[in-house]
Amino acid sequence: MGYKIDEYLRQDKLPHIWCPGCGHGTIMGNLIRGIDKANLDPDKTVVVSGIGCSGRASGYMNFDTLHTTHGRAIAFATGIKLANPKLNVIVITGDGDGAAIGGNHLIHGARRNIDLTVVLMNNHIYGMTSGQFSPMTPTGDNATTTPYGNIDQNFDLAGLTKASGASFIARGTAYNTRQLIEIFAEGLLHTGFSFIEAISQCPVNYGRRNGLSSAVDMLKCQRDSSVNIRKWDSLSEEEKKGKFPTGVLYKEDKREYTEMYQEIIDSVQEEAK
């Protein structure tokens, strides 16, 4: 059961900077276990991260790693992947980095169905800048920039990426680590745009302001509000209230961007002969 993880971590960079009880360390650890389970060649694996708490993950992971600008990781990753499709390219982003400033690149990456594995660590807040609300902060909640309660609605990120064309969509939680590992491994092995929302907990900047002061409480909340997709469809609308489905939500085998482009190159070079 134990996964080889030490060689994929930059040991000299630990302890990491994430706050006590933050879910990002758990998610990053289980992403590494997913990489191990998927048996990826670490020399051919690139991790691209944006700016924010999630953005620091690439620095701890022992691969070719790139810490880019806020919201643009998917655009950088698109160039890395298209230039060398043999690379396994993983993007680590957050709910602010990926769904606010980075939203346009998220939907276009999905639309292209380019073979990237995008892990969006959703802790429902801008943690790095100490607690502003994000597109995933629940309506009504408190944050430093919603002192009177958040009036914004949230994205349904799974629905958004599905409508945009992603061919693998899953959601996991920091609570259910085994499910996370399975989801990461399957997403990594899927050819096409794999979008994985990983629900994380931010006790310091989100929980503290919204009646959930400890990581343990927040993890229990994740446990109680997540329902495996296999059971989800049997629930009534009433039962679904306040809950969300987890697991592989959608999977489709669809033409992948870099493969289609290689066909153009092959045919053009054939003609040129």
Binding site: L9, H16, C22, T26, G29, N30
Partner: peptide
């Protein structure tokens, strides 16, 4: 059971 190893966010312990 590995629960602690899989859930620890800081890679402190392992089975």
């Amino acid at each position: 059971c590995y629960n602690c190893e899989l859930s620890c966010p800081d890679f402190v312990l392992e089975v």
